[in-house]
């Protein structure tokens, strides 16, 4: 299933609508009821247009405490791993396995050297630490592919398990920040962002709030 939109808010609403209309009902390991669709691909042609709008919409609900933009940025770019979190995206991206800065030492120099490369991939999932039976927490985002097309940088993110209502707004903003960081370093424009969510789900307990978002003009 594919959704193609110019803005982040339209893409998000279409995905929510699609899951509510066609998603199958699933009960997860915590006994929570959700609706799920498999392998949804969402393409946002111009993410820069309104990338924070889904977050703003979540904040307007005033039901939860959504992290501030600075906090989301901090998590995405903080290199140091913390003993207190199971993992952080920043540490996985900029200090993978405590050894590799995947962006500054690989993606940026590679794209500069070979703008047509198909090798510009960042891994977030780490089988050595994440593929363990008893572990409950492993990263939702698995990998990010960077591809230059027509002098614009396009990103494709693969997400294992994606709470499309609560999680996706933050995910898409953080991915955009990374896209911007790389484009500024290599001197090109931002292109599209695609998220491929293997399990795209919405929990039933948020039905009322999802409806409120869908009704919003």
């Amino acid at each position: 299933m594919e959704i193609i939109k110019n803005s982040a808010i339209d893409a998000w609403k279409s995905a929510l609508k699609m899951i509510k209309e066609h998603g199958r009902k699933v009960i997860d390991h915590d006994n929570r009821l959700s609706q799920e669709l498999l392998n949804i691909s969402i393409i946002i042609n111009n993410p820069a247009e309104d990338i924070t709008k889904p977050i703003d919409a979540m904040k307007e609900l005033k039901k939860w405490v959504y992290p501030e933009l600075e906090e989301l940025e901090d998590v995405m770019f903080k290199k140091e791993a913390s003993s207190f979190y199971y993992y952080t995206y920043g540490a996985r991206i900029f200090n993978y396995a405590n050894t590799k800065n995947q962006i500054d030492d690989f993606i940026i120099p590679l794209l500069k050297k070979d703008p047509n490369t198909r090798r510009a991939v960042v891994m977030i999932y780490h089988p050595v630490s994440d593929s363990k039976i008893n572990i409950k927490e492993s990263p939702g985002m698995l990998s990010i592919m960077f591809k230059i097309v027509d002098k614009k940088l396009n990103l494709t993110v693969v997400i294992r398990s994606n709470d499309m209502f609560i999680g996706w707004p933050a995910n898409i903003y953080q991915i955009y920040l990374l896209q911007k960081y790389v484009t500024e370093s290599i001197g090109i424009e931002t292109g599209s962002i695609t998220t491929i969510s293997h399990s795209a789900h919405v929990f039933q307990e948020y039905d009322e709030e999802v409806e409120a978002i869908l009704r919003k003009k």
């Binding site: 939860w64 992290p67 993992y87 995206y89 939702g140 999680g167 933050a170 953080q174």
Partner: peptide, 13 residues
């Protein structure tokens, strides 16, 4: 819900 938000943002705790 808050745990899900923070988990999605890459700060699972």
């Amino acid at each position: 819900a808050q745990q899900t938000i923070y988990k999605s943002c890459g700060m699972p705790s």
